[in-house]
Structure formats: structure tokens, C-alpha cells
Design a protein around this nucleic acid. Structure first.
Lengths: 129, 129
DNA sequence: TCTAGAGATGAGCATATACTCATAGAGACA
DNA sequence: TGTCTCTATGAGTATATGCTCATCTCTAGA
């Protein structure tokens, strides 16, 4: 799955690629970057707030109890990553989910976490051998 | 999707939950933690190396050109997160993928990245309106 | 028991980034 | 134009973590 990265520039036109593993390093960094954006609980909270529709920055400030500056920065990060979209509405700015796949992604992680925890719980049920 | 978090302790037995959004904060932190583990290109490289089967630490050192200490630490992080598994084989330790769902997850991110880049590329094709 | 090789880890450094405070920029309205 | 509200951002601090060096532990074999 990871070996068949789409953004490996598909160098089929090039005669020889020096290192097959080297080529996709940029892609790996981009993927890691994406994960890093999601690796912050407050950003996930913001995403969750926007699940039901678009909200202004001050709405999000109220709902998350974060400072306005902090919310704004997180929204910027998420927007830059293509996860959120924004539009002006008079004096305020409304943010919305731009990449709904994000929820599926989180669902996936939830599943993995559940499996992991079940496995660890099983270790208690049947300890050592 | 994020609102129906499985690890929200399913408080159906409890009469009243004080704050529906507060309850899942632990879960959100766990999810973020999981994303953070994947938010490191070198760790993704290690995961990719293990895609074809288990390898020893020194194998991975050779393949990634990272230092032994660094590889060992990353493997520890990934193992702790339940993403990798390990077993001793004589004097060496073999690591393997313990959560194959990780590849699906990366595939998902790749898809999102592609969509995002396509969108941004489209902005060049039809600039400003 | 001693030695060698493989892997894990403590200590320390460098860097990234989350957070806050203060302030600047943008739109609405008098 | 002046002012108000909402949002964005520069500066500074605190913390987390990736990396390395040195060292320790564990296993196999002499």
C-alpha cells in the first residue's frame, strides 16, 4: 500500500530511477505532515465542532473554550492542509469541512485503537502464556 | 463519525452525562496520539520496510540509513502504539506489522492528498473566478 | 565465565510547535 | 472618516520530541 504511493511522480517515462525507496521520501513527508496536522486533540475538537456545518471563529472559541488566537491558528493549520475551507460572511469568517474523508480516517483510527485496547485487555484475561 | 466515538465509554447505563463533548476528550487525545505516532516520515519508512515481512533492527538500520539508536526508539514508539509487534530470534529482535489497517489508513491519506493537490492544481487552471 | 554482537536506553542538544499577549487588518455601521 | 467587532498574526515562552553519543542489557557461543 505504501509502496504504491500515487505521488511517486510515476516516473515511468524516466529510463532509470536511482533508488526506488528514495523517490517517495517527499511523499512520505507529505503523508507524515498530514498525520501531524491531525495529531493534536484541539484540532480534532475543532473538526468535530464543524461536523454539523460551518461555524465562525468566535463560535468555535465558545464551543472549545480555547483562546481566539489559538483557535485561529489551528484553523489556519487545518485550512492550509486542505481539511477545512473558509469563507467570509460580513465581519466574521465561516469555516467548514472541506475534506469529509477526515471522518472516515478518524473512524479508522478508532477501530485500530479499539482493536489495540481489546488486545491489551486480553492480556489481562489470559496473562503470561 | 467523530461524535459517535466508540470509546466514549458508551454511557447508556448512566442516567445523565454532564457534558457530551467533555466526555470524549480522552478519546480525542488518544486519537491524536495515534496520528502523532504516524506523523513522522522516518516511522512511515520503517513501516513501509516491514510491509513485506518481519525484519530485525539491524536490517532496518541498513535499509533506512538511520542510526541504530534512532531506529530502536522509533520501533519502540510504534510498538507501544500497537502498530508493530516484536519477537526475539536468538540475538536479534524481529519486528512486524501488528496492525495491517495502517496501510489502509495511509492509503486514505494518500487519496486525500491527491484530491487536495488536484484542487490546488485546478486553481491554476481557472484562477480567480 | 568471558567475550562478542544486537538491541535498548539515559543524558544532552537542537528544533518544532502549542500557547498566550498584544496588536494589526478587515468589514459594518454611525 | 471614526469606531466597533471579528479575525489574523508577530513576538516570546514553555514543552515535546527527534537525534546522537555513550553505555547498559541480553543472548549465543567459546
Amino acid at each position: 500500500m505504501l509502496t504504491s504511493l500515487p505521488m511517486a511522480k510515476t516516473p515511468k517515462t524516466k529510463a532509470a530511477k536511482p533508488e526506488p525507496s528514495e523517490l517517495t521520501d517527499d511523499a512520505l513527508e507529505m503523508i507524515a505532515q498530514r498525520f501531524r496536522v491531525l495529531g493534536e486533540a484541539n484540532r480534532l475538537r475543532l473538526i468535530r465542532c464543524l461536523e454539523d456545518g460551518e461555524l465562525s471563529v468566535s463560535d468555535l472559541v465558545v464551543r472549545t473554550s480555547l483562546t481566539q488566537a489559538n483557535v485561529s491558528r489551528h484553523l489556519q493549520t487545518l485550512t492550509h492542509a486542505g481539511i477545512l475551507g473558509r469563507r467570509r460572511d460580513g465581519v466574521s469568517v465561516l469555516y467548514r469541512i472541506a475534506d469529509p474523508g477526515i471522518f472516515e480516517l478518524c473512524g479508522h483510527v478508532c477501530g485500530s485503537l479499539q482493536a489495540d485496547m481489546a488486545r491489551k485487555a486480553g492480556a489481562f484475561a489470559a496473562p503470561a502464556r
